[in-house]
Simulated scan of single mutants.
Amino acid sequence: MFPEGGPGAGLLLLRLSVALPLLLQPSGGPLMHAMRALPAIGLCLGVLTPLLAIVSCLFSFYDFMVMGGATLPEAGIKLLAAGALALLGPGAHSLDARLFGRRVVTVPPRKKTRVDE
């Protein structure tokens, strides 16, 4: 689904709220920062949003369990926001919407057989 209007703008804001902590978290070296920047940029653009939201969940869980860079409430909020984004999708203001767009699938009527008669 790629909702437009207010819900689409809300999903854009949700994508940004999940992506920005990935960019602004100062844990790890340059390699870790690059590993965080790629999914963050993808989320900002709305590319592969459900997959990258799950990657964001994994980074939040890693920060909480291994790095100690977040408290339980902070990690919980990040996990909830990323989980909601993974379930809701990118919205109309995304590259996913441009690439895949809305599709209408029409199923042709079933032909009658002898059993149906």
Rank of each mutant, 00 (worst) to 15 (best):
M32Y: 10
L24A: 11
A40R: 10
G68H: 09
G8C: 02
L13C: 13
L48N: 10
P26Y: 10
P50G: 07
R15V: 02
A92V: 06
M67K: 05
L13N: 13
A19H: 07
M67T: 06
M35K: 10
T49V: 01
A53I: 02
G8D: 06
R15L: 04
L51S: 05
L58S: 11
E74C: 07
I41R: 06
S27C: 14
L99A: 07
G42P: 00
D116S: 14
S60F: 09
M35E: 09
P108C: 11
S94Q: 04
E4Y: 12
Q25G: 01
L20D: 04
K78L: 01
S17D: 00
R102T: 15
E74L: 11
G69A: 13
G69V: 08
G76L: 13
E117P: 00
L16W: 00
L80Y: 07
V115Q: 12
M1C: 07
I77S: 03
G46E: 01
K111N: 05
T71K: 11
P26Q: 13
P3Y: 15
G28P: 06
C57H: 01
G10V: 09
G29F: 00
P109Q: 14
G6N: 05
F61G: 02
G6Y: 09
L45S: 07
I77W: 05
S17E: 01
D63P: 03
L95S: 11
T113L: 10
V66Y: 04
R98E: 09
T71I: 08
T106E: 13
A9S: 11
R102A: 12
M67A: 10
I41M: 05
G6D: 11
